[in-house]
């Protein structure tokens, strides 16, 4: 489109210098209202998870059978569960587990993907073939099923659940990284670095990976959302985080017996999962538009 070319020719230079790259990124991000709302929600959720012990007067584990199964009220805004525990407190506390485990899981899969994707994308050839065929196998197994299998084999607990989460995520991230690297590795500045005698590690670390960062950040954010979903799924099935540690999935599981009589016990944790996942997806979309404005068209 000639129009676009004209514009980009004008937009470089002084104006960008005056404000810096970050200014334009933030500006583009703020234009996406949904993403701003999502980011606010996530920040609130994180704050709530960190300070949950101070935010509500109730303890997440202490049972109080006198107040069991109460509907939402001024004292318990989300009501109480079958043991009389405040659901709001438990959701905040559950966020701590969900966020932490999904962050650990996604960090693990990203680390693995960085190594595998770099080797596959940068060196290509046999290593690429081997790694990518393995990833094809991973991707052909449904994610939740794979996580369940790994989780069942490893047992329960936060770190083990995180590992179970990480494995299906590796394939997606590796593919993404590999394709970004393959696009980058023929660019002239990589060739320039080679002409100066730069080693492969130097080139990968200084030129290739920093330039793959934006798609990686987006994918990272989106993965956080889907792994929250996955943890809840595992916990719901009794595989992930074990009671009494509250987790949104096991809260739903605990509440399902009372679905007809006390639906709030299922609705609120369910809503929490939905909102968290939606927020991360919206944030991911917003980041993509902000980091790479060309993708929007």
């Amino acid at each position: 489109m000639p129009n676009g070319d004209v514009m980009s020719a004008y937009l470089s230079g002084e104006e960008v210098k005056r404000h810096g790259k970050f200014y334009f990124m933030a500006k583009r991000f703020c234009r996406n209202k949904a993403a701003v709302v999502a980011l606010t929600f996530i920040i609130l959720l994180i704050l709530g998870a960190v300070f949950c012990d101070y935010l509500t007067p109730y303890d997440y584990a202490e049972q109080n059978l006198a107040e069991a199964k109460q509907l939402p009220s001024a004292a318990h805004i989300f009501g109480t569960d079958d043991f009389g525990r405040d659901i709001f407190t438990r959701i905040l506390r559950g966020a701590r587990v969900s966020l932490l485990v999904s962050l650990m899981g996604v960090l693990m899969s990203t680390a693995a993907a960085l190594v595998l994707g770099s080797i596959a994308g940068y060196y290509g050839g046999k290593a690429d073939n081997l790694i990518m065929r393995f990833m094809d196998i991973l991707i052909s197994i449904p994610g939740l099923l794979l996580s369940m299998t790994v989780s069942a084999a490893l047992g329960t607990g936060m770190v083990k659940t995180a590992i179970a989460m990480a494995i299906p995520g590796v394939a997606q991230l590796t593919r993404q990284l590999r394709s970004s690297i393959m696009m980058l590795k023929d660019s002239e500045y990589i060739e320039a670095a080679k002409a100066f005698g730069g080693s492969d590690i130097h080139i990968l670390w200084n030129h290739v990976l920093p330039n793959c960062l934006s798609p990686l950040i987006v994918q990272f954010t989106l993965s956080l959302g889907s792994s929250i979903m996955c943890i809840s799924g595992l916990s719901f099935l009794g595989l992930g985080v074990q009671p009494p540690t509250p987790e949104w999935g096991n809260m739903v599981a605990a509440g399902q017996d009372y679905l007809r009589t006390y639906p709030h016990m299922v609705i609120f944790p369910g809503l929490a999962v939905m909102c968290a996942m939606l927020a991360f997806n919206l944030l991911g979309d917003g980041l993509r538009d902000a980091l790479d404005p060309r993708m929007k068209q």
Binding site: V6, M7, Y10, L11, E15, V16, H19, F24, K27
Partner: peptide, 12 residues
């Protein structure tokens, strides 16, 4: 002229 985020570009 082009009215852009960064300012007004006087093209012609």
């Amino acid at each position: 002229r082009f009215n852009t985020d960064a300012g007004v570009v006087h093209a012609v």
